[in-house]
Amino acid sequence: MTVPFFELRGVKKHFRSKSTFAQRLLAATGQAPPPPVLRAVDGVDLSVMRGEVLGLVGESGCGKSTLARIATGISAASAGDVVYDGRPVVQLRGKERLDFLLKVQMVFQDPYASLNPRMQVHRIVGEALRVHRLLPKNEIDAAVDKALTEVGLDLAYRNRYPHQFSGGQRQRIGIARALAVNPDFLVCDEPVSALDVSIQAQVINLFMDVRERRGLTYLFVSHDLGIVRHISDRVAIMYLGRIVEIGPASAVFDKPAHPYSAALIAASPSAARRKRDFQPLKGELPSPLAPPTGCPFHPRCEHAMSKCREVRPVLQEIAPGRSAACHLHTSDNA
C-alpha cells in the first residue's frame, strides 16, 4: 500500500459557546453547568491518496465545511493532526508552512463572498504571487493570464471587478486564484451548489479537465450526491461530526453499508425515478450540542438495536477499502 500524501488523524474541532462573565462566575463556583461544547468535528481520520478525488458528503451542520477549513489550514484543529507529505502540519514553520498552505488550496462555495469586491480580477489571481514574491514582477502578469486562460476566462476581462461577472464566471476566477500558486491538492467546499444547473455542468467539467491536465488531488465537499458520485473515486459520508462510512464511490452508492448512507441515497432525488412513493427518513438531525448517546444515528435508524443506544460504533473495515461505523457490521454482533 502506498503512503497517503494527505492525512487527517483524529481531528476534532470543538466550539465553546461564548459565556458571559456572570455565567463564568457561576460555573467557577459550581453553581451552573459549564457552557455546552459544540463538537463540529468529533474525531475524523481520513487519508487521501495522490491523484484521487475523495468526495465528502453530509447534510448541513455535519461538520464537512469545518473539516475542509482544517484541511487547508484556514482554521486550526482543537485536537488531532493534519499530516501533509508525511509531516504533521503543526510542526511546519516559515517557508515550510507557507509551502503547505499554497500546495493545499481551497475553492469556496459562495461566488459572491469569496472574491474581494474591491480588487480587479488580475490582482485577485496574482495576489499571492505578488505578496510572497513567488515570481519576479515581470512574470506575474503572464502567470495570471495563464491561470485565467486555463479556467476559460477571456483575458479582456482581467481588469474588471468581481461584480461585473456572473456567478459561474466568479467561480472560475476563484479556481484560477487557487491554480495560480500551483497547488497539488484542491479542497472544494460546495463549489457548485450556488450555481444554476447548466452552469454547474460547465464548472464540473472544468474541475475534471484541470484535474486531468495537472494531475491534481481533490477533496470534494458537497451535499449533492449526484455530483459527488459523478466526480469522486472514493466517497466519505459524514454525520454529526464523524465519518460513518467510507469506500469506493461506486460501491458506497450501489450498496451502502451504513443505514444513514442508505437513507441519504434514497432521499436524494433522481430524474430517472417517476411519481415515486417517498419513504422519508424519520426525525430531524439532532443538535450537535447534545448528540444522542451511543450511535448518533440510532434515533432515526430503522435497524437500531439496544446496543446502538449504549455503545458508539467505531469506523472499521468491512471489506477491502471500505469502512463503516455501524453495529450491523461489527463482527461480535449477536
Binding site: 498552505l101 499554497l102 481551497m106 472574491l115 499571492a128
Partner: peptide, 19 residues
C-alpha cells in the same frame, strides 16, 4: 470567504488588514 482565501494563501496579517 475572501478573507479565508487570503488566510489560505498565508498572506501576512497586516496585508490582510490593509488590502
Amino acid at each position: 470567504e475572501y478573507i479565508e482565501a487570503a488566510v489560505n494563501f498565508g498572506l501576512p496579517t497586516p496585508h490582510i488588514m490593509l488590502a
